[in-house]
Amino acid sequence: MADDLELRFERTVQADARIEPRDWMPDGYRKTLIRQIAQHAHSEIIGMQPEGNWISRAPSLRRKAILLAKVQDEAGHGLYLYSATETLGADREDLTLKLIEGRQKYSSIFNYPTLTFADVGVIGWLVDGAAICNQVPLCRTSYGPYARAMIRICKEESFHQRQGYELLMTMMRGTQQQRDMVQDSVNRWWWPALMMFGPPDSESTNTEQSMAWRIKRDTNDELRQKFVNMSVPQAEALGVTFPDPELRWNEERGQYDFGQPDWDEFWQVVKGGGVCNAQRIAHRRKAHEDGAWVREAAAAHAQKQAQKQAVKEGAA
């Protein structure tokens, strides 16, 4: 019986068809998905902070509106993704606790600080760009609700990426001070953006099983290469350079060669030692704890309403 179910699951995955919430699935698959989708949801929610940092100071009303709408979209993405985990039996409150207690991770990129308004543009261009490279393959991932959420998220992320790039284009046409600001921001974000694809394949522990289950569809190094190939011409069009002396076109491979990020820094930030790790979690924890009385009130009110309704129906 169990073998039949497992066989059917394997066949569905191999045929590139979707696993849906009521279908049988191996425990490991369910756990891996909950972990991966929750980490993705947490990344969206924590990711509201570095850009949210500039909403109050946005230098034009149009940019303020774009930024506010973008950060609002990130909250929306977090919401779809937490909902996707709920189809696997997870609970949003429980996942939020795991985040603020440091038991689940989020994308380490958000532990870097946003120091100038150019960072808003560079995050859109490079960070959202890298996220999209990671996420587009997930639109074909084997778990249906995740795949469908990712299609919507990727579309919105693509708008964000273009908006970020358009901001940088505008700044590059501005004053020398603005051009310097953009280059400085690119220098600070380029390596962390490359780190977003995860450690080199030779050191990645989760890749093999996830590839077999078609949760993941490309390796870290493949995606990183694709991102570099895409980004170099964009940087040239913009008029900025990447801070990598080894970056050059390799005619033989038909791809760009590039240097390795500082993996010691990567692991240091992943393990909590980044400039903003403690701050990001403290911010999220404070919002969650400060809001507890509001959530309790909403639940209490809903319960009272339900009781009133029951009494009314009983009397009728």
Binding site: M48, Q72, G78
Partner: peptide
């Protein structure tokens, strides 16, 4: 907009940002 990322629920982050 000061509430953005500080609201009691994600739904409320979205609602207050929308009103802003």
């Amino acid at each position: 907009s000061e509430w953005c990322s500080r609201a009691p629920e994600l739904e409320e982050d979205i609602a207050l940002a929308n009103i802003a």
